[in-house]
């Protein structure tokens, strides 16, 4: 799907809006995702960020990696903070108290800050219809506090609070379908993305940003530290998540599903799982069960979705 144009730099802004000097782990896929998302956002944005890895690594006093206005307050309230910013900007420019620039409001949070503790605030903000883009960086656990499970942790994965043991296979629940929850709010734009597909990711961010009303993008972000995989495999791992059908890339525009890529021949999930320490303890039966589930869900998605051919490619 990603037709890498030969001269990438011509297509992507050279500006590093997420400045180097951040303290993310070596090979962090979440930092890569933030960096690419920021390139697509450009400079005319205000970012509200949740507590989590990306906040901690980017804003240790007296330093900041942010080149754009950025605010962090707490873990679970990012969508509400963004609501306040958006409402204020609107009324202030209407009252002539701020220049009528078209500054966009963006919220950043991890999977914990989104699908667990921040779900209520996000639901409220989507329901009220604020004009903002919410980006969830999903590394499938609470990484900042030391790899504890979240509702976004995949079935079978070992984390520090869903450890594998004689009596446990690790995480015993299936990953919460956060994009579907966003879709259920009838918002105009929802998408999944992954930095291993940088052009797709950036195009979706640009679309989400341009959409009036709430937009939600769920970005799979490989975490070598928490997934226990070699840091040089970060980009490859994201690709495998997509090619196995574990993390399909799609968009939902006004309720209509579009597959960003259609792999009728999915790779076996083991191609992905065998490279990660968090799945290493799983028996063949469990892997088989995961394989079946992935196939069923992918087939369900294909039934709902159409293949998209964007003019811009």
């Amino acid at each position: 799907m990603e037709k890498y144009a030969l001269y990438v730099p011509r297509l992507v802004t050279k500006e590093e809006i997420f400045a180097p000097g951040h303290r993310a782990c070596i090979g962090c896929g979440e930092a890569l995702a933030v960096r690419l998302v920021c390139k697509a956002l450009g400079r005319d944005v205000i970012i509200a960020s949740a507590t989590g890895c990306m906040e901690i690594v980017s804003s240790q006093l007296p330093y900041t990696s942010w080149q754009v206005p950025w605010i962090h307050t707490l873990f679970e309230n990012t969508a509400a903070v963004a609501s306040g910013i958006e409402a204020a900007l609107k009324v202030m420019s209407k009252k002539g108290k701020r220049p009528a620039r078209d500054t966009k409001v963006v919220a950043f949070a991890g999977d914990g800050g989104t699908s667990d503790i921040g779900l209520q605030a996000l639901s409220g903000a989507m329901e009220r219809g604020h004009d903002f883009l919410y980006v969830c960086f999903d590394n499938e656990a609470y990484m900042n506090t030391g790899i504890q499970r979240s509702s976004s942790t995949p079935f079978g994965a070992a984390t520090t609070t869903s450890p594998a043991g004689k009596m446990s296979i690790g995480q015993t629940s299936w990953k919460k379908n956060m994009p579907a929850i966003a879709v259920a709010h009838n918002i105009p734009y929802v998408a999944t993305a992954c930095p291993s597909y940088p052009f797709d990711l950036m195009a979706k961010v640009a679309r989400g940003l341009a959409t009036p009303g709430p937009a939600y993008i769920h970005v799979l972000s490989v975490c070598p530290t928490g997934w226990r995989c070699p840091p040089d495999l970060t980009v490859r791992m994201g690709r495998l998540a997509v090619e196995t059908g574990i993390f399909p890339l799609y968009e939902v525009e006004n309720g209509k599903y579009w597959l960003s890529d259609d792999s009728s021949a999915l790779r076996p999930v083991t191609d992905y799982m065998k490279l990660q320490g968090r799945f290493r303890h799983l028996s063949e039966d469990v892997v088989e069960e995961i394989q079946r589930r992935v196939k069923t869900e992918y087939a369900g998605l294909r039934r709902k979705a159409r293949r998209r051919h964007h003019e811009d490619g």
Binding site: E16, A19, P20, G21, H22, R23, I26, S58, S59, Q60, L61, P62, Y63, T64, S65, W66, Q67, V68
Partner: peptide, 17 residues
């Protein structure tokens, strides 16, 4: 405790890791 120097993390050397 607002930081008014955007992107000043670029003064921080991560290459030492």
């Amino acid at each position: 405790s607002i930081v008014t120097e955007p992107g000043n993390a670029s003064q921080y050397q991560t290459g030492a890791w």
